[in-house]
Design a protein around this nucleic acid. Structure first.
Length: 445
RNA sequence: CGGGGCGUAGCGCAGUCUGGUAGCGCGGCGGUUUUGGGAACCGUAGGUCGUAAGUUCGAAUCUUACCGUCCCGACCA
């Protein structure tokens, strides 16, 4: 993409309404525009990052054997009356009527609808296990939305639902989700720690929240620092292997890690003092096992291998996709702007032409741009008639992890400069070598 | 929902107390000179002062109501 052809309305000054860094940077980097309280329009670069996150989620769900569906945002109240939640949900649920006076609502979650799909089409244990998920807009009418996309009213979320014949199978589904979530977050460049949590209004017996450590987090968190060293890396994972999933889940849930809601001081004190950490965290996902709550209420049952009619065991699982943009920025930025992890960056590499219109720099930039594009990477070429300072400031603000700077001095010597956004380190390389380096970096992402 | 702010150009703000020609910086557009960390100069466009009613010869400014939005609290993926 050439910057002169892109729509990137960056702001030099901080918008008054944004108090926390991710909100400020998303507005300044031209990623979002507030439409009304807690509701945002997504501009091209913000949408691009969101789509990268979405893609990682889809890929990891596919790997775990889960199937995508798409359910409506506007739902009839009928199913919600059947489960009893139409009355339980309260003011957070946005309610409305259609022209016939029928009660409708904007979905805050989709247990009812998915259970309705299930009961209509599945009747045998042979069709299980089944996990369906969607990535769809949700709405919760927060009393006080704040912090930009981190606590919006409208939000984009992956919500998934597993259906299993009994508790043991459902437990594996739980563990499988834990592993797939850990993988997803790792690919986004995040360390998200599973923490035992309360189940809240969704209702459940077993539940973990995934929290990203950040000063601006909404929850206070207590954890054993041993957990922050854990990583899946390139472990070979077989999602059909119950033992392997259980083992990984245990590895990540054994060290103490809880939010203030479930914090147990006595247990915490058993952690060696040097490893006891108190911090704040942003919740970026949650998994639940809730058994037969909805299947009982809505009559979703299957015949098991003994010929008995049994209610299905269910769980639900969420990843806050739009919220993740804020969380990633909170966890990865500096005074000059965003620092995108390679896994979610909107463009793989910036190309900065320091002397637009100069035959030499223009040619090197164009060649790099074409070669990088041909290699399957997406560069952002700053081809504006701007001075160096303005171009650097823009690149730093929008946070592309790598930048190639092409100036007349370097071109004369046959080199360009490759700079790492995170460390600020630069090296001078021949253009083809710089390209090779960028290709190599992304080959493992 | 309780408490407290704020609504004036795309963004950041002054002007409101004490009523009388709507301003500044950034950004935009045109031009000249610049060119390795948000350049300088010249020119130029851009505003129902949140909305409505009221007071007044006259309202951005005073009064009332409403709307929007932000912050703290309670609540929450």
């Amino acid at each position: 993409m050439r910057l002169t052809r892109y729509f990137l309305p960056v702001l030099k000054e901080n918008p008054a309404e944004a108090k926390i860094v991710s909100h400020r940077l998303m507005l300044r980097a031209g990623m979002i525009k507030q439409a009304s309280a807690g509701i945002y329009s997504w501009l091209p670069m913000g949408l691009k990052v969101m789509q990268r996150i979405e893609r990682i989620v889809h890929e990891e769900q596919a790997r775990a054997g889960h199937l995508p569906v798409l359910m409506p945002t506007l739902q009839s109240a009928d199913l919600w009356r059947e489960s009893g939640r139409y009355d339980d949900y309260g003011e957070e649920m946005l309610r409305m009527q259609d022209r016939h006076g029928r009660d409708m609502l904007y979905t805050p979650t989709a247990e009812e609808l998915i259970t309705d799909i299930f009961r209509a089409h599945v009747s045998s244990y042979k069709d299980l296990p089944l996990t369906l998920y969607q990535i769809q807009w949700k709405f919760r009418d927060e009393i006080r939305p704040r912090f930009g996309v981190m606590r919006g009213r409208e939000f984009y979320m992956k919500d998934g639902y597993n259906f299993d014949v009994d508790y043991e199978h459902a437990l594996h589904a739980y563990n499988r989700h834990m592993v797939s979530y850990l993988r997803s977050y790792e690919r986004m460049g995040l360390q998200a720690i599973p923490m035992r949590a309360d189940s809240g209004p969704i209702g459940g017996e077993d539940t973990h929240e995934f929290l990203v450590l950040a000063e601006t987090g909404e929850s206070e968190v207590f954890y054993d620092s041993a957990i922050t060293g854990l990583t899946l890396g390139d472990r070979d994972i077989d999602y059909t292997n119950w033992d392997q999933c259980a083992l990984i889940a245990r590895e990540w849930t054994e060290p103490y890690a809880r939010t203030d809601e479930t914090h147990d001081e006595a247990l915490f004190n058993q952690v060696p003092e040097a490893r006891r950490k108190v911090s704040r965290g942003i919740e970026v996902g949650q998994i639940f096992y809730f058994g037969t709550k909805y299947s009982d209420a809505m009559g979703a049952s299957v015949v098991n291998d003994k010929g008995e009619q049994v209610p299905v065991h269910m769980g639900s699982h969420g990843i806050g996709v739009s919220r993740l943009l804020g969380a990633i920025i909170e966890a990865s930025h500096d005074d000059n702007g965003i620092v995108w992890p390679e896994g979610v960056t909107p463009f793989h590499c910036g190309i900065v032409n320091l002397r637009q219109g100069d035959a030499g720099t223009d040619r090197v930039c164009e060649d790099l741009y074409a070669a990088m594009t041909a290699a399957g990477l997406e560069p952002l070429y700053d081809d504006r008639e701007e001075r160096a300072g303005a171009k650097f400031a823009t690149m730093d603000l929008i946070g592309l992890p790598w930048r190639i700077t092409v100036g007349p001095r370097g071109v004369k010597n046959g080199v360009v400069e490759l700079t790492c956004r995170r460390t600020g380190e630069s090296e001078e390389l021949k253009p083809e070598m710089a390209l090779a380096r960028v290709k190599e970096i992304y080959s493992s992402v």
